[in-house]
């Protein structure tokens, strides 16, 4: 496989994992051979996946020990069911024991799996607590977002709990997906078929502009790898989140709600921030990063 030019968006979860980590370093935990499938999908006669739509394991990244989970967006929209969620939580609990330099979550999910909604919701809450527990034990958690399902629902919350978010322009991050808002509130509120609009609301560029994504990268597996590797260098240690930290975050978010009280399109945010905002949606990733003053 040519590792240089592989699209992250097009790749499967397994291809992403193998392309991201050091060659031949990945060891899968609870592998597909064990066939831990969803009992709830089975009882509905729905298609099953032997990995329940998520690959988890340990590996090295630029020589450092990491743990990694990758959701498979092509299986039930990367949705979190009982088994799927338990694998991610188990990985985060393993981190408390093995102390990797980071846990990487390759999020590609619409959120809770509706066919097993109750178990999925609790599983996401468990993942949230496990992320927070890992972080307070000094283990950084990164989210990588660039798949077709983005990071929505509870996984959108999980992603924003992470210390870093690496996103491609194609990646999307939010809470309620455009389709959900359109079906409940009407097409005039959110036209989910207006692709450009959807990306100006949820896509990598606007999320990077607001500081949620910490890196915007090209849609290439090596670009994600490079960004994650560079970010690792920031975490010699990770002190626990303090009251002061959260008061500052409270201040920043209050300011955002006030400053952008009237916006309903990412373009309006760009107009407020940049003197030249007309062509931002069309900029290449490197030109966009230059505009933001980001290091490559």
């Amino acid at each position: 496989m040519n590792r240089r030019r592989v699209s992250y968006f097009e790749a499967s979860a397994r291809v992403r994992v193998h392309g991201l980590v050091d060659e031949n370093s990945f060891v899968e935990l609870c592998p597909a051979e064990l066939r831990k499938t969803s009992p709830h999908l089975a009882s509905l006669d729905a298609p099953l996946a032997f990995d329940d739509g998520v690959v988890v394991g340990r590996a090295t990244l630029a020589g450092s020990a990491i743990l990694i989970a990758a959701q498979e967006g092509r299986f039930n929209g990367g949705s979190v069911g009982e088994v799927h969620g338990a694998k991610i939580r188990g990985l985060l609990e393993l981190a408390l024991l093995t102390k990797p330099v980071a846990v990487l979550l390759l999020v590609d999910s619409g959120g809770v799996r509706l066919q097993e909604a109750n178990a999925g919701l609790i599983a996401i809450s468990e993942i949230m607590r496990a992320v927070l527990k890992g972080q307070s034990a000094g283990i950084p958690v990164f989210a990588l977002i660039g798949g077709s399902c983005g990071a929505f629902g509870g996984m959108g919350i999980v992603a924003r709990l992470c210390n870093e978010i690496v996103m491609s322009e194609q990646g999307r991050l939010g809470l309620s997906g455009p389709e959900v808002i359109e079906t409940v509130k009407g097409v005039e509120e959110f036209d989910s078929r207006d692709r450009a609009l959807v990306w100006r609301i949820t896509g990598g560029k606007i999320r990077r502009t607001l500081g949620e994504a910490t890196r915007l990268v090209d849609d290439l597996i090596p670009a994600f790898r490079d960004a994650a590797t560079r970010l690792l260098a920031r975490y010699v240690e990770l002190p626990p989140v303090t009251l002061d930290d959260l008061q500052q975050a409270q201040h920043r978010l209050t300011e955002r709600t006030g400053r952008f009280a009237e916006v309903s399109d990412g373009q309006q945010i760009w107009q407020q921030i940049f003197s030249e905002s007309a062509g931002i949606a069309g900029l290449t990733v490197s030109d966009f990063n230059r505009l933001l003053g980001d290091q490559p």
């Binding site: 949230m128 927070l132 959108g156 919350i157 999980v158 992603a159 924003r160 709990l161 991050l173 939010g174 809470l175 309620s176 455009p178 959900v180 808002i181 409940v184 509130k185 509120e189 959110f190 609301i201 949820t202 606007i206 999320r207 607001l210 949620e212 989140v241 959260l246 975050a249 409270q250 978010l253 955002r256 709600t257 952008f260 916006v263 309903s264 399109d265 990412g266 945010i269």
Partner: peptide
């Protein structure tokens, strides 16, 4: 549920509550 709330990044506000 609204486009405005999504644009502001409501999921991030929820994550903030969870951290608190």
């Amino acid at each position: 549920l609204s486009r405005h709330q999504e644009l502001l990044g409501l999921n991030g506000y929820f994550a903030h509550v969870a951290r608190c």
